[in-house]
Computed example of a mutant assay.
Amino acid sequence: MMRPVLHGDVTSVARALLLVDEDARDGLCQRIFVQADQAEEHVRLSGRLHSSYGNGSLMAAARCYNLADEPSFDNTEYCRCFALVLHRLMRR
Rank of each mutant, 00 (worst) to 15 (best):
R88C: 03
G27Y: 02
L84C: 11
D23W: 02
G56N: 03
A24S: 05
E70M: 13
Q35I: 14
R15P: 01
A62F: 13
S57L: 12
A83I: 09
L84R: 13
Y78G: 09
L18S: 02
A61E: 14
A60G: 09
Y65T: 05
L89K: 01
C81R: 06
G56W: 05
H42R: 07
S46Y: 07
E22H: 13
F82Y: 13
D23S: 06
D69T: 05
S72D: 12
T11H: 09
S51Y: 07
C29T: 08
E70S: 08
L18T: 08
G56P: 13
V13Q: 10
E77C: 13
L89F: 00
V85K: 04
P4G: 09
R44W: 05
R80A: 02
S72E: 08
L28N: 03
C64E: 12
F82E: 14
A68H: 00
C81E: 01
G8V: 14
A62M: 10
V10M: 10
A61R: 12
H87R: 07
R92P: 04
R25I: 01
R15V: 03
R48I: 06
D26M: 09
S51T: 06
E77G: 12
R15C: 04
R91I: 06
Y53V: 11
V13I: 10
L58P: 04
R88T: 03
A62W: 10
L19M: 00
E40V: 08
G54E: 03
P71Y: 04
C81I: 14
C64K: 12
G27S: 03
L17T: 03
D9Y: 15
Q38D: 15
F82K: 12
Q30D: 00
V34Q: 08
S46V: 03
L28G: 00
E22C: 11
E22F: 12
R15N: 04
N55H: 10
N75D: 12
H87A: 09
H87I: 08
A61M: 14
A60S: 11
Q35S: 07
H7M: 10
D69S: 05
A14C: 10
H50V: 06
N75L: 13
A39V: 15
C81P: 00
L17W: 04
R92Q: 13
V85Q: 09
L45M: 01
H87D: 15
L17F: 01
L6R: 12
M2T: 08
H7G: 05
C29P: 00
A24M: 04
L58F: 10
M90P: 07
G8K: 15
R80H: 11
D9H: 15
T76L: 11
C64T: 09
E41G: 01
H87F: 12
S52A: 05
H50S: 04
S57N: 09
A16V: 14
M59D: 14
A61V: 11
V10A: 14
